[in-house]
C-alpha cells in the first residue's frame, strides 16, 4: 500500500428507490506515483463512476480512498481539488460555450486564489502547444483537438499531481489523438504525474499504461500488465473475450459472445 492512490473496497450506489444501481462493487486498486493506470471494460460497467468518486464529484461512496496517504472522506477541502484534476470525454461538452479560453483557464486560478494569473495562463497554453493567439477564442472557434488541449491546460494549470482521464481521445480523429497522447506522455515525464486513464481503445491503454484493470458489472475482474495485453495473455474469460474482440469485427465471433 505505498501508492499515491489507494482504493480499498470502494462501493458506489447511484439513483434512488427501485432505480438504484450498485454501480461500483468492492473495487480495490493501487497506483504508484508516476505510474499510468488503465481502466477498461464493458460500457456501463462503472469506469466513469470510479473516476468521479475519486475526483470528489460523487460524495456518497463507501470504502476507502487514500490519496497521498490521506484518507479522503466525503467532504473535501478546496486543497484536495488542487492536487487532483480530471479531463472529460467530450471536448465539445466540457468547455463553457460562453467563456473564452482565457476565462476558462483563469477560473481555477480564481477559485484557488492563486497569484501570477497572467504568467500561469501563458505557460499553461504553451505547455499544451497552443499559441497565445488562442487565448481569447471561444470554444466554437476551436477544433476538437484544440478544445481537448484547452481542457488539459485547464486541468494542468493548478499543477496537480494526479490526472484522471475519462476517454480523453475517443471523440478525436487518429492524428489528433496521436497529438494528445504525445502531449500527455510528455507532461507525465516532465511533471512526474500520475494518471488514471479510461479508454475503450485497448491499443491506447496498452500504449499509455503500465497497469490495466478490467471492469465488468461494477467489479474489477482482472488486473493485467502491459506485457500481458501485448501477448493477449489473460486468465479471465471476460478479458479474453475483450482482447479477442479488439482484433476487429467478425460476424461469427459476434454471435458467439458471452454475457458476463
Amino acid at each position: 500500500m505505498a501508492g499515491i492512490i489507494d482504493i480499498h473496497n470502494l462501493d458506489v450506489h447511484l439513483g434512488r428507490g427501485k432505480d438504484a444501481v450498485h454501480a461500483v462493487r468492492n473495487v480495490s486498486f493501487s497506483v504508484k506515483k508516476g505510474e499510468s493506470f488503465g481502466l477498461v471494460g464493458e460500457s456501463g460497467s462503472g469506469k466513469s463512476t470510479v473516476l468521479r468518486a475519486i475526483s470528489g464529484l460523487y460524495k456518497n461512496f463507501t470504502g476507502k480512498i487514500n490519496i497521498d496517504g490521506k484518507v479522503q472522506n466525503q467532504h473535501k477541502g478546496v486543497d484536495f481539488y488542487k492536487n487532483l484534476q480530471m479531463v472529460f470525454q467530450d471536448p465539445y461538452a466540457s468547455l463553457h460555450p460562453r467563456h473564452t479560453v482565457d476565462q476558462t483557464l483563469s477560473e481555477p486560478l480564481q477559485i484557488h486564489k492563486l497569484d501570477q494569473v497572467e504568467k500561469r495562463i501563458r505557460t499553461a497554453l504553451e505547455r499544451v502547444g497552443l499559441g497565445l493567439n488562442f487565448r481569447f477564442r471561444y470554444p466554437h472557434q476551436l477544433s476538437g483537438g484544440q478544445r481537448q488541449r484547452v481542457a488539459i491546460a485547464r486541468a494542468m494549470i493548478l499543477e496537480p499531481r494526479i490526472l484522471l482521464l475519462d476517454e480523453p481521445t475517443s471523440a478525436l480523429d487518429v492524428s489528433v489523438q496521436a497529438e494528445v497522447l504525445n502531449l500527455l506522455t510528455e507532461l507525465r515525464i516532465e511533471y512526474n504525474l500520475t494518471y488514471i486513464l479510461v479508454s475503450h481503445d485497448l491499443a491506447v491503454v496498452a500504449y499509455m499504461c503500465e497497469q490495466i484493470a478490467v471492469m465488468n458489472q461494477g467489479q474489477i475482474v482482472e488486473n493485467l500488465s502491459k506485457d500481458q495485453i501485448m501477448k493477449s495473455n489473460a486468465t479471465e474469460r471476460y478479458t479474453q473475450q475483450l482482447l479477442a474482440a479488439s482484433k476487429g469485427y467478425d460476424r461469427d465471433a459476434a454471435g458467439k459472445l458471452l454475457q458476463f
Binding site: S55, G56, L57, K76, V78, F80, Y81, K82, Q85, M86, F88, Q89, D90, A93, S94, L95, H96, P97, R98, H99, E107, P108, I111, H112, A151, R154, L158
Partner: peptide, 26 residues
C-alpha cells in the same frame, strides 16, 4: 449535468459561484 459544469465542480467551486458565473450566463 453537462461536463462543463462538472468540470468547475471538480475544481472546487462553490455552488453560488457556479450559479452566478456558469449557469446564469447560459
Amino acid at each position: 449535468h453537462s461536463e462543463f459544469i462538472l468540470a468547475v465542480q471538480q475544481q472546487g467551486a462553490s455552488a453560488w459561484r457556479i450559479l452566478l458565473k456558469h449557469i446564469v450566463p447560459m
